[in-house]
Amino acid sequence: MATGGRRGAAAAPLLVAVAALLLGAAGHLYPGEVCPGMDIRNNLTRLHELENCSVIEGHLQILLMFKTRPEDFRDLSFPKLIMITDYLLLFRVYGLESLKDLFPNLTVIRGSRLFFNYALVIFEMVHLKELGLYNLMNITRGSVRIEKNNELCYLATIDWSRILDSVEDNYIVLNKDDNEECGDICPGTAKGKTNCPATVINGQFVERCWTHSHCQKVCPTICKSHGCTAEGLCCHSECLGNCSQPDDPTKCVACRNFYLDGRCVETCPPPYYHFQDWRCVNFSFCQDLHHKCKNSRRQGCHQYVIHNNKCIPECPSGYTMNSSNLLCTPCLGPCPKVCHLLEGEKTIDSVTSAQELRGCTVINGSLIINIRGGNNLAAELEANLGLIEEISGYLKIRRSYALVSLSFFRKLRLIRGETLEIGNYSFYALDNQNLRQLWDWSKHNLTITQGKLFFHYNPKLCLSEIHKMEEVSGTKGRQERNDIALKTNGDQASCENELLKFSYIRTSFDKI
């Protein structure tokens, strides 16, 4: 039985969820670079991206490699990797027998973001014989899940209580170790020597080791999670996991709180800001991140802002960003909400898709409305799209047979046209069989910064309504002859009103 693990408890099935942008060198404390989270699957090609990484700022997932063999891993080693800020997950990587050479110096898994409450997941690794993470000293947050690894031993010899604050939620089941077939031998045991430290858990006094050649490092209890030197002297209180010299914040392997210019500090002093819960960055760093993602459509890219001495992905609820200094300031009234469309555009074809934009005031991208039916549609669209004030790209209304009016965009005031449909149009209306009105132009103002209007096959939309939009939106004169079809717009509506004058002759039985 794995020490510190839980057996036999019912657990939810383990679901495996399925960018080499360097964020800056980590400095003297770390020998390499800070790398983003990685999802490495199918083959070993991307694994080489770990070569210079000291910190993975995010998670590391290595999974679904069915053609790899043990010899493929023999020359692979990433000794610079010290810390993973989120979680480490391995799933069905064939041929991998140990992690001792792959990650010989991995010391800390912070667990800032977890995989279903777990910071370390080893699942269905069919050839893994031992973990071998002999320098792993601290899992700051989260638990361990090690399950269905039929060859995995050296679990009962690990004292997880020396690595985690609590072992109650560890789930370590259905491994070879369960069948008591392992016969784990710690260093020196074969020669009758006791080389590794022994600890007591559940009444068992057991030597602690990761492999037959690597003991588990056990520091004096007084050192807590700070770690200790090879001689057993406690590291500085700002260290986490390990250090090369005692009581020196510049000799830590990793930091308990924050890293700044080669030393570990309790908090980031001005003019620095907390970033990702582990390091200090200056304003320029946060500003660069903001600008890199301002026009990016890459998933996970955030326009970072500053709030409460932190550089964070977005302002919290009730705050909006001051564009001059990136500071989050309290909103006066309802907060603006910028919604970034991942692929640059979004099609609204149902109430469900409209709900995804609920509360958005600025759309960074283009909207395509293609709704053919739905219950209580006008009210639903207004509830979900009615706060949109600005669209950076274009607005396209296409084959939306259920629409009679666009009044559900009740606050839309600006279409920038930074991206144009077919390279020309910022407003595009095609084949809307029941569209009769755009907006009530006596109450609604709309500016279209650039781009043209396109109207074709809107049989109940009168040309007068379209011409009014040209005047109000500032697009009059931009359109070419064929942009607004004269014969297919309003051709099934009563669009022309003329005053009919009647004269009559009164007659009676005795007068003409």
Rank of each mutant, 00 (worst) to 15 (best):
T211V: 10
R162W: 14
Q287T: 09
N202Q: 14
T250K: 03
K67H: 03
Q299W: 03
C315P: 01
S324P: 15
C223H: 03
Y94A: 05
N202K: 09
E124V: 03
P70N: 02
L120T: 02
S225C: 13
V206P: 14
N309H: 13
L88M: 06
G37L: 01
K217C: 02
V253Y: 11
N149A: 08
L327P: 15
I185W: 15
A254D: 08
G183C: 09
R145I: 08
G188T: 05
I312F: 00
L114N: 05
L50P: 01
G227F: 03
N150F: 05
C219Q: 01
R298I: 08
L90G: 00
C264W: 01
S317Q: 07
R208K: 03
Y171P: 05
H307I: 14
T320P: 03
L88H: 00
N149G: 03
T267A: 10
P79M: 03
F73K: 04
T189F: 13
I62Y: 00
L260Q: 01
L240I: 13
P104G: 02
Y304D: 03
S323A: 07
A119W: 01
L81C: 01
R298Q: 06
P36M: 15
V206G: 12
A119C: 02
N242L: 12
S244H: 10
P334L: 12
G37F: 03
F285H: 09
V281M: 02
V34F: 15
N105K: 12
Y319S: 15
L50M: 13
N105P: 00
V121A: 10
R141N: 08
L260V: 13
S77D: 02
R110Y: 04
K310N: 08
N42H: 05
Y259M: 08
G262F: 09
D178W: 14
N195W: 12
G203P: 05
K129G: 10
R145E: 01
T140V: 07
R110M: 10
I122G: 01
F73V: 12
Y304P: 05
G111R: 00
R256L: 09
N202V: 05
D75E: 11
T189Q: 12
G232H: 11
M83H: 06
R110K: 13
K224V: 13
P36A: 13
C255A: 00
D86G: 07
Y118A: 09
K191T: 05
L131I: 14
S317M: 14
V121S: 10
Y134T: 08
P336Y: 09
T45S: 03
C182S: 08
Q216T: 06
R162L: 07
R263L: 02
N179Q: 13
N42G: 08
I312P: 03
E238I: 02
S324V: 13
K67W: 13
D184F: 05
S161K: 08
V34H: 05
I185H: 07
S237I: 08
L240T: 06
G95T: 02
K80A: 09
L81M: 05
I56P: 00
N257M: 02
L164K: 14
N52L: 13
S324W: 14
C315S: 00
R41I: 14
K294T: 15
N282I: 15
P220L: 10
D39P: 02
P249S: 06
M137P: 01
L44C: 05
C328F: 01
E33L: 08
E207W: 14
T45M: 08
L106C: 01
T107A: 08
H226D: 08
L50K: 00
T68P: 04
L128W: 01
E151M: 05
I158W: 04
P79H: 04
F115L: 09
G183D: 15
N295F: 08
L327S: 07
E238H: 10
D178F: 11
A198F: 13
N42S: 08
T157Q: 10
C328K: 00
A198C: 13
R110V: 05
C182V: 02
E49L: 11
L99G: 02
K310V: 03
G95F: 08
H226P: 08
F66P: 15
L63H: 10
C186I: 04
T199A: 13
V121P: 04
M137A: 09
P104T: 01
G333K: 09
S98R: 03
I56S: 01
T157R: 13
H212D: 15
I158P: 05
V305W: 07
V218D: 06
T211G: 15
N202E: 07
V200A: 10
L88S: 01
G111P: 01
D184K: 04
Q303A: 04
P336S: 11
Q287K: 09
C311K: 04
I312Q: 11
D159W: 14
T320M: 12
T140Q: 07
K176L: 06
N170E: 05
E97L: 07
K129W: 11
H226K: 11
K224Q: 12
R110L: 08
D288N: 14
D261C: 02
H307D: 15
H226S: 10
G142I: 01
C243N: 00
I40M: 06
N257G: 06
N170G: 06
T320R: 14
H307F: 08
F205N: 12
D177F: 12
V167M: 07
N135C: 05
E97T: 07
N149W: 00
N322E: 00
P79K: 02
N309C: 04
S323D: 15
V121T: 09
Q276S: 10
H59W: 11
L240S: 07
C328I: 02
H212V: 08
N43R: 09
V281D: 00
N105T: 07
K67G: 02
K217D: 05
D277R: 05
P246T: 03
K148D: 06
T85F: 03
K251W: 05
F123L: 06
P79L: 03
F258G: 03
L81V: 03
P197K: 05
S317D: 09
T229G: 07
V218F: 04
C335G: 03
G111H: 00
H291E: 13
P316F: 05
P270R: 05
Q299N: 05
N170R: 12
C252M: 03
L174N: 13
C280L: 00
L60D: 00
S161C: 12
T107K: 08
F258K: 15
E238C: 03
T211N: 09
C228A: 02
T329G: 12
M321Q: 12
H236S: 11
